[in-house]
């Protein structure tokens, strides 16, 4: 995914960005600021430019993050992902007209399929009671998300939905009393189902999505089984009568 974003921004060597290397990371950040984000004037970029003395660079980077209003993200990858997203957004806003044809409606027409954009569920819940676009509300959601380590999303309502799920699945009393899952864990990237051998960027998220889908299907099936069992309580009356039995020749 990072590679795709770098490619979209026209990075000269998107394949060679090694994220484990701090220096490499620093130069990628510098490239982003120089070419795309341009938050500072050229003179102000001096500290970021100082790749030879990483101490100075780190200091400059810290300030840069704050000036960019980057949410507090822990890992290098998260920070870079956020910056890339930010850069792409700026690039887009330079000339939105250019991308007008690239929207789901237009693509939907090409597929000859109608696609509905689902409104975030949360909006309906709060409708009329709380102004969900209120500044305080937004900052509250962001703070809550930070606390629970929910990744940043530009739409705070979607983020709130993710928060709700985590609370429901991990922190609710029912979840806390749940027995831990026993059995041998299986590395999910080793299943019989191959999505794409050459493209881990496609393979990995596909597997995760499929697992989530299977999980919700399992929940549905369990509910169905529970319903059947509750009906069985009323109707079941198995009988056998050995007198009827006859073994053939």
């Amino acid at each position: 995914m990072l590679k795709l974003k770098l490619e979209a921004l026209g990075h000269p060597t998107p394949n060679d960005v090694v994220l484990s290397n701090r220096k490499e990371f620093a130069s990628t950040v510098l490239w982003l600021e120089d070419q795309k984000i341009r938050l500072y004037t050229i003179e102000d970029r001096a500290m970021l430019r100082n790749l030879d003395d990483m101490k100075v660079w780190e200091e400059g980077y810290k300030k840069y993050c704050a000036d960019l209003n980057m949410p507090s993200l822990e890992t290098q990858i998260e920070q870079l992902t956020w910056m890339l997203g930010h850069a792409i957004r700026l690039e887009f806003l330079d000339d939105p007209g250019q991308y007008e044809a690239f929207n789901s409606e237009e693509w939907g027409k090409q597929d000859n399929k109608k696609k509905l954009t689902p409104a975030p569920k949360i909006q309906a819940i709060f409708d009329g009671k709380i102004n969900v676009q209120d500044k305080d509300f937004i900052s509250g959601v962001r703070a809550l998300a930070n606390k629970l380590n929910v990744p940043h999303h530009p739409n705070h309502l979607l983020q709130l939905e993710a928060v709700a799920r985590i609370v429901h699945e991990r922190l609710s009393p029912a979840a806390k009393n749940r027995k831990p899952i026993t059995g041998t864990p299986f590395p999910f990237e080793k299943g019989n189902d191959i999505v794409s051998v050459n493209d881990p960027a496609l393979d990995y998220p596909m597997r995760i999505l499929r697992l989530l889908q299977i999980q919700s299907l399992r929940e549905l099936q369990t509910q169905i089984n529970e319903t059947i069992v509750s009906v069985q309580d009323l109707t079941a009356n198995p009988k056998t009568d050995t007198k009827l039995g006859k073994v053939g020749f």
Binding site: P238, K239, T240, D241, T242, L244, G245, K246, V247, G248, F249
Partner: peptide, 12 residues
């Protein structure tokens, strides 16, 4: 389990 040709079951 009743078996064989012409066998009959025990479930009424």
């Amino acid at each position: 389990i009743p078996v064989g040709v012409g066998s009959k079951g025990i479930i009424p």
